[in-house]
Amino acid sequence: MNIYYDSGIYVEGRKTRFVVDPTGPIKRDVDFVLVTHGHSDHISRYVLRQLVVATQETFVAMYIRLGSLPTRRITVAPGKFLELDGVHIAVLEAGHILGSVMYLVEIDDLQVLFTGDFNTTGTILTDAAEPVDKPDILVMDATYGDPAYIFPNRAEVYNELLDVVERYTTSGKVAIVAYPLGKAQEVAKLFGTRAGAHITVARYNRALGIPTGMEKNVVIVPSLRSAPTGYFKVEVSGWYAEETTKREAAKRGVYGIPLSDHSDFPSLVEFVTETSPKLIYTVYGFTERFAKHLRRLGYRAYTIPGIMGLAKFF
């Protein structure tokens, strides 16, 4: 079996080929596509002519982003199982955003876990991702695979956000900058009707069943550029766990809060320890740095090979 990255994670078995989260042209014939969630760096219009497996929430996000849906699609949810072309697929909670999932795939008598983006900390919107016992191969997200990224307790982060907004709305207005799919829904859930939303955020909230208030003093916006003039800007992002990033933002008048929908560095390491796979491929983010750290811990861990560096490990 071969696994490699080529604008998507390709898996070639003896009789079946599929791709996970393709973001570019699908250059080879595939039997099906697995999509882990609806962020733009995990979906693209190139899936529209394929047989696509995803959750209902991911198909909602796909329609909003692409204006269309695959004509051939299979809707799944965490806890579901299916078989496609002799490949057994278990769908597991990823904890990243609404509708995000991991896929545990059995192909050619090997088990491969694809995490997509994942979060082992539960939120007010999602359950936590949980490890799988001893898959043969783990293909995992390494977005925050650097020791600098250690996130505070989520309840503390929620309280900090609530306190900052309350403090600055006593004499002004606040724009909360949050990625429109994911953290924006989490922030909207936290504030309820006490916060309004930019049209882009409101569209996702409405489609995903998250109530949005009409408040004008506190608004959730998708980017710093979309913050209304005169509003104090609070941005939520995991990158603010790194102090230099937070200080640089403060110089620009932005209050950064380390609210992330990914696992932090210690959680990534713990997930590997509890999963204990035979082979690990890192993808997205600090891939080589995290793989090197795992090798020091005794794991066979490598950045996922590209098409030119294709190697057979099984």
Rank of each mutant, 00 (worst) to 15 (best):
I9W: 00
I9C: 04
R14A: 14
D21R: 01
I26A: 05
K27H: 06
D29A: 13
V35C: 08
H39L: 13
D41N: 15
R49V: 07
R49S: 14
Q56A: 13
V60Q: 06
I64C: 08
R65D: 13
S68W: 08
T71M: 10
R73A: 10
A77T: 10
L92M: 08
E93G: 03
A94H: 01
A94K: 00
M102D: 03
F118L: 09
T120I: 03
G122H: 04
D133W: 11
I137C: 03
A148R: 14
Y149W: 11
P152I: 07
P152Q: 08
E156L: 12
E156D: 15
Y158V: 04
N159D: 12
L161V: 14
V164H: 05
R167S: 12
S171Q: 11
V174N: 05
V174D: 09
P180F: 08
T193V: 11
A195V: 14
A197R: 07
T200F: 09
P211A: 10
P211R: 10
K216T: 15
K216R: 14
P222Q: 11
S223L: 14
L224M: 11
F232Q: 13
W239F: 13
E243Q: 10
V254C: 10
Y255D: 05
L259I: 09
P266D: 09
L268H: 00
V269F: 08
E270H: 05
S276T: 11
P277Y: 06
P277D: 09
Y284K: 12
H293T: 14
R296Y: 12
L297Y: 06
T303Y: 05
G306S: 14
G309H: 08
G309W: 06
